[in-house]
Design a protein around this nucleic acid. Structure first.
Length: 479
RNA sequence: GCUUCUUUAGCUCAGCUGGUUAGAGCAUCUGACUGUUAAUCAGAGGGUCCCUGGUUCGAGCCCAGGAAGGAGCGCCA
């Protein structure tokens, strides 16, 4: 008989029918009630055993963590916690799990710290929390592809190994096949990269944006969705050395179009999760609520996870310029009381404390800041007419900080060449990028969304290492 | 990279002014019970007190150095 998934049995199963369900045992209570989970839903199915009719040695092997197949009739449950359950007629042990060893793992049926779960990333999928997080992670990835596909975007695969060091987005990981102990040397003692695999130094990508622009300037609208690597020694709950980024790029869009696209995109993702991940979201909502109870009143979230998602879905993002933001900060209470650690004045890069004040105190909703000073933003951002600022935008989310960074791109050949000079970027390194400005250049714009930061927002997880299956961070590449 | 906190049983933690045999809850095991929902009740086993060195009659506790982890900051998405 064909196996039914737990979610099928719970949603479409008809009472009286025979079913086969396979999964992992979460709990075996009273020698009678097996809680079985197969990953298709956060919910377990209860399989009820008349232990008088089964071999005691067989029942002994039904332990937390073991894998079994049960055959039986789907019946209405006599208990309160579930509508239906399986009256077991046959049990097959698929894989044993020794309780003494299970006890040392995160499968041990008790509450665990996230730190302990992180040390067992290979087993944390078995827990309710991480099951929910990774089902939602999938749903968000799918929603992103669906959003862009429905709007006529093309998914463009930009290179992971890149020879250009021009993005300026951060430190890069060198990729080489040279012998690290005895590399071939030039006469002056430097490494001879002509003998390396690609004949020159190459790195893992820090951004697919420049290549995405090339695609957009022919295909019209494209997006990338791939792994991104930053060799920064960042030790925070918001940074990974390997993360996933989505970078749409649209020809003929200006900064306003870019903001509109960003806002509808983020709201679409939130709506998709609210609509399609109800069970997992309800669990994470409850989980967060319980966690909040252990915190002092003033550190608790004002809204629950689901309320926060609904709030973002229903309310317009607050849009203001960098210059307006600086004015607001200068008039703010914490500034006047000297409570900011970092000074505020036009021209500075906003610090976390400033962004948090704007997002969490002043507006209490997502904020889009635009038109930053040119000096603190990348070379490819379009120069505004004031000569001082560029058409940049950062989207700031409560609790997460910067979730999107984007801009209208500099499409004027001469201006871009000047910017390259000012930023010390050699033309011969990005001649291909500059050429698009020579042949039918047009205004265009795009942005980058940190995928994991978005997952943090929709799951309520507060450490980025808990929303990617196998986190890579400084000094940690286990699994 | 900087600041700060933590490290004691499988997990989460307590451990008094430095003093005899290091504790609790949960988990595991054994037994009882059997329509349970984090099942319940009784009992048992389980320790390199992170590592190295020092002070002391005596160190889980004090001092020095190191390691690992968390949080915050910087860099950024």
């Amino acid at each position: 008989m064909k196996r039914s998934k737990v979610i099928e049995v719970l949603t479409d199963g008809s009472v009286g029918s025979k079913v086969v369900v396979k999964g992992w045992v979460r709990a075996f209570r009273s020698n009678r009630f097996i809680q079985l989970n197969d990953g298709s839903t956060i919910k377990n199915i209860q399989a009820v055993v008349d232990f008088e009719n089964f071999d005691e040695a067989l029942l002994k092997r039904i332990t937390t963590g073991s894998a079994i197949a049960v055959t039986g009739e789907l019946v209405e449950s006599q208990g309160a916690g579930q509508a239906v359950e399986i009256q077991v007629e046959g049990i097959e042990i698929l894989g044993d799990a020794n309780p003494d060893e299970v006890q040392r793992t995160v499968m041990q049926p008790k509450r665990h710290s996230l730190e302990f779960l992180r040390e067992q990333a290979h087993l944390r999928f078995r827990t309710n929390t991480f099951g929910a997080v990774f089902r939602i992670r999938h749903a968000v990835a799918y929603a992103i592809h669906k959003f862009f596909n429905d709007r006529g975007f093309y998914y463009l695969h930009t290179p992971i190994v890149t020879g250009s060091d021009a993005e300026g987005a951060g430190e890069m990981f060198r990729v080489t096949t040279l012998d690290p102990i005895n590399p071939p040397l030039n006469e002056d003692g430097s490494v001879n990269y002509k003998e390396d695999f690609f004949g020159k130094p190459v790195n893992l990508t820090v951004s697919g944006q420049l290549e995405a622009e090339l695609g957009a300037l022919a295909l019209g609208q494209v997006y990338t969705f791939g792994p991104t690597f930053r060799a920064e020694n960042s030790n925070t709950s918001r940074h990974l050395a390997e993360f996933w980024m989505i970078e749409p790029e649209v020809a003929f869009n200006d900064l306003k179009d870019n903001m509109d696209l960003t806002e509808s995109f983020l709201k679409y993702i939130v709506d998709y999760v609210l609509e399609n991940c109800k069970d997992d979201l309800a669990f994470l909502n409850e989980r967060e609520a319980n966690e909040q109870k252990t915190k002092p009143q003033n550190e608790r979230n004002e809204m629950s996870l689901i309320e926060r998602l609904e709030f973002v879905s229903k309310n317009d993002f607050k849009r203001l310029t960098y210059t307006e933001a600086i004015d607001l900060l200068l008039q703010s209470k914490p500034y006047k009381k000297g409570q900011f650690k970092f000074d505020v004045k036009w021209g500075i890069d906003l610090q976390s404390e400033h962004e948090r004040y704007l997002v969490e105190k002043e507006f209490n909703c997502p904020v889009i800041l635009t038109d930053y000073p040119a000096e603190i933003k990348a070379f490819y951002m379009r120069q505004n007419d004031d000569g001082k600022t560029v058409a940049a935008m950062d989207v700031l989310f409560p609790g997460i900080g910067e979730i999107v960074g984007g801009s209208q791109r500099e499409e004027r050949f001469d201006v871009l060449k000047e910017k390259c000079k000012a930023f010390d970027i050699h033309e011969e390194e990005i001649w291909w990028y500059l050429e698009t400005r020579k042949f039918g250049t047009v205004p265009h714009a795009g942005f980058g969304l940190g995928f994991e930061r978005m997952i943090m927002f929709v799951t309520g997880m507060t450490n980025i290492r808990d929303v990617i299956p196998f986190p890579r961070t400084p000094q940690n590449a286990e699994f």
